[in-house]
């Protein structure tokens, strides 16, 4: 008698593995923006310098790198001004590493909220991507200022203007990689926390394997190939190629990074979906 029963929602023991409710995420877009606002406003409350800290952090890191890798270890910067070279690497890299480390504890850090209210869980890592985008914007601005200074005073900087359009794509891939790795780690650590100990350490190692401080130009072809297997390498190299004229640019490798990101996101969203249902019992 009840053949045409319509239910808005059926709560079942398991989600279908491919079930990704994009409509629900869209419905909660206001929450996403409010979370971004919260992150931005709350971090620098009760500090005197406020958002200026966004500027100070990368500059200090670049200066440290210039001193340690440039002056002490004397690692090549592809004949670019060292500070500019390191800033170029750090700007994109720190976006990736911030996204990764912040999304990697999505479940654990938000357990108290997740335990009380339902909303699409992916909103939280997505909001991390957006709020770090603001930080990236500020850091990119400093990079541009320094870049303009060296561009107008020296001839060590030879930008490839025709490739400028690639920049949003680079940021997109970076965001996707940070997001993918982040939620993957987050899903894998709800039950067994072992992986969390590796994250901080792993990100540090990954930085050295991503040509942030060591350019791949001076490496043998074999090492270069291995370095490029890391999807981050060609992004950072491309960024340097566009703005500084050094670096390394290859469409194929860029496409490789892009596909890597796509696959990673697919796998990690599936795992995230699976964990989402039961994580409150295991976290």
């Amino acid at each position: 008698m009840q053949t045409e029963e319509h239910w808005d929602l059926i709560i079942k023991p398991k989600n279908k593995w491919y079930q990704l409710d994009l409509a629900a995420i869209w419905r909660y877009r206001d929450l996403l923006m409010l979370l971004v606002r919260r992150d931005f406003v709350s971090v620098y409350k009760q500090t005197i310098l406020g958002p200026l800290w966004f500027l100070i952090q990368p500059v200090l890191t670049a200066i440290t790198f210039t001193f340690i890798f440039g002056s002490v270890a004397k690692i090549s910067t592809d004949s670019n001004p060292p500070i500019l070279f390191y800033m170029a690497g750090i700007t994109l890299w720190s976006y990736f590493s911030d996204c990764l480390t912040k999304t990697s504890n999505t479940f654990i850090a938000n357990a108290s909220v997740f335990g009380k209210v339902y909303f699409p869980r992916l909103i939280i890592p997505l909001s991390v991507l957006v709020s770090n985008l603001i930080k990236l914007g500020i850091q990119f601005l400093i990079f541009v200022v320094i870049w303009i200074y060296f561009y107008s005073t020296t001839n060590q900087v030879n930008p490839h203007w025709n490739l400028m359009w690639l920049l949003p794509l680079l940021i997109f891939i970076m965001a996707g990689l940070g997001f993918g790795f982040g939620i993957l780690i987050s899903s894998l650590t709800t039950k067994y926390r072992d992986l969390t100990f590796l994250v901080g350490f792993g990100v540090q190692l990954l930085m050295y394997a991503s040509s942030v401080v060591i350019p791949i130009s001076g490496m043998s072809d074999k090492v270069k190939f291995v370095m490029l297997l890391n999807p981050l390498t060609s992004i950072i190299e491309t960024f340097k190629y566009i703005f500084l004229g050094s670096g390394f640019y290859d469409k194929g490798w860029l496409f490789y990074s892009f596909s890597f990101m796509g696959l990673l996101i697919m796998i990690s969203v599936i795992i995230f979906n699976k964990v989402e249902k039961s994580f409150m019992d295991t976290v």
Partner: peptide, 30 residues
């Protein structure tokens, strides 16, 4: 929908809002 069932299912018609706690997600600095 905070946690999933082990067996069985629930069918729902309409939008659910749950109040398992007040002040969920309040941020002290805001």
């Amino acid at each position: 929908r905070v946690t999933g069932p082990t067996l069985g299912n629930i069918k729902v018609r309409g939008r659910i809002a749950s109040l398992l706690e007040v002040g969920t997600g309040f941020h002290p600095e805001l």
